[in-house]
């Protein structure tokens, strides 16, 4: 089993589980599905940066010329880093929307207004 196969299969499992949850159509499952999907998508993006162990993109402080092949690609990492944080905010937003909708439904049902 190669590293690429491991990553690809993990991505496949995460996305498949996410889609299955999303299609259940219950609000809670949508939240679970989106969370799983964001794991899968983040891994996918990360996988585009020629991942490999022990090649962290920390370059020597005063080194001259360096060979890019000694490091993993830092750009997808930078993208994924911000994506993780924004994904968190989006989860919060989604849950808040779900709550608001429930409140609105409750208002309608109670016919208080």
């Amino acid at each position: 089993m190669t590293l690429e196969l491991m990553l690809a299969s993990q991505i496949a499992i995460l996305v498949a589980c996410a889609l299955y949850c999303l299609m259940r159509g219950r609000l809670f499952d949508v939240i679970v599905g989106i969370t799983l999907l964001s794991y899968g998508v983040n891994l996918f993006l990360f996988a585009m940066g020629r991942p490999a162990p022990d090649k962290a993109p920390i370059v020597p402080a005063h080194g001259g010329a360096l060979s890019p092949a000694d490091y993993v690609d830092p750009l997808p990492q930078a993208l994924v880093l911000t994506a993780i944080v924004i994904g968190f905010a989006m989860t919060g937003l989604m849950v808040a929307l779900a709550l608001r909708r429930k409140q609105a439904d409750g208002d309608d049902a109670g016919a208080e207004q």
Partner: peptide
């Protein structure tokens, strides 16, 4: 549908990584 979507994404990642 879920397996198709997940499998396809994984395949895409696999192809891209190679």
């Amino acid at each position: 549908i879920a397996v198709a979507g997940g499998g396809g994404t994984g395949w895409l990642a696999w192809e891209a990584m190679l």
